[in-house]
Nucleic acid binder design. Structure first.
Lengths: 139, 139
DNA sequence: TTGCTCCTCACGTCACGTGAGGTGGC
DNA sequence: TTGCTCCTCACGTCACGTGAGGTGGC
């Protein structure tokens, strides 16, 4: 799959994809200079996840990169998890995962509650306007 | 109140406030060149509303400006509202207000449902990690 | 008078957009 | 061969950040 198709399927642009590769958000992949970039289904999903987090959380790309690197560290830990039988080590890995998940949850929940407040205010405005309209039509 | 206090109270910076004035998001106010900018409580609230919408909806400042201008148009309409007795005109004003509110609601709700999906995924991840931890401790 | 905050350029940065000119695969 | 998409500079833009040098009010 080439860059144009990836861009279309993720709702972004080739330029953005190249930029993310440049700053290390997407893997560069061994590729001869001047050759086309090639992608698979997993690349599409990773990029989709990146743009989703970018749009929903209010992070800089650098912060987002660190967050994703923490995710990958967790994946690495899961591999080590399967290789160790030591309960203490397994617990440590789990605690780290849980801390990371909690940080993301706090970010998401704060945003959600702010959005909910805004929605309530809009609903109240609409309620008022609808009441006035009913009154006007009822006359 | 001077620009530094406004910036602090709204969680932004003097530079941002000056920039918003420059692009017309905030009123310039008649002011002799080189003199300090002065603000009141209403300015603080307007700026707080701007930064809130900026952070929560994913709009460019130009789109945000248009949205706020529509809001002010509604305020203008409310003034005309009080001056007209014509039910047809009042209805037209109301319909326009309702359309505007609905557009904002759609934006907010889409974001909220996306955030809720993300939150559910995080909760599921946490549920799994907690279950593994219980299992490990239970052994 | 001394700090402190303010002022206006003006260049820097982040996250891309947008051509300019050229190369590669169906 | 002809389109089409791709490539790499490289300059432009949006939303500010960050000094540089100077002025104004408690």
């Amino acid at each position: 799959m080439r860059i144009g198709e990836v861009a279309e399927r993720t709702g972004t642009t080739p330029r953005t994809i190249r930029y993310y590769e440049e700053i290390g958000l997407l893997p560069g992949g061994g590729r001869e200079k001047g050759k086309h970039r090639l992608y698979d289904e997993r690349d599409v999903e990773r990029l989709a996840e990146i743009t989703r987090l970018r749009d929903l959380l209010g992070l800089t790309l650098d912060e987002l990169k660190q967050l994703l690197e923490a995710d990958e560290a967790r994946a690495g830990l899961r591999r080590r998890w399967r290789q160790t039988e030591a309960a203490r080590e397994r617990l440590r890995i789990l605690e780290e995962s849980l801390g990371h998940i909690s940080r993301q949850l706090r970010l998401v929940r704060r945003r959600r509650s702010e959005l909910e407040r805004l929605e309530q205010e809009l609903l109240e405005k609409r309620r008022m306007a609808l009441a006035r309209r009913r009154e006007l039509r009822g006359d």
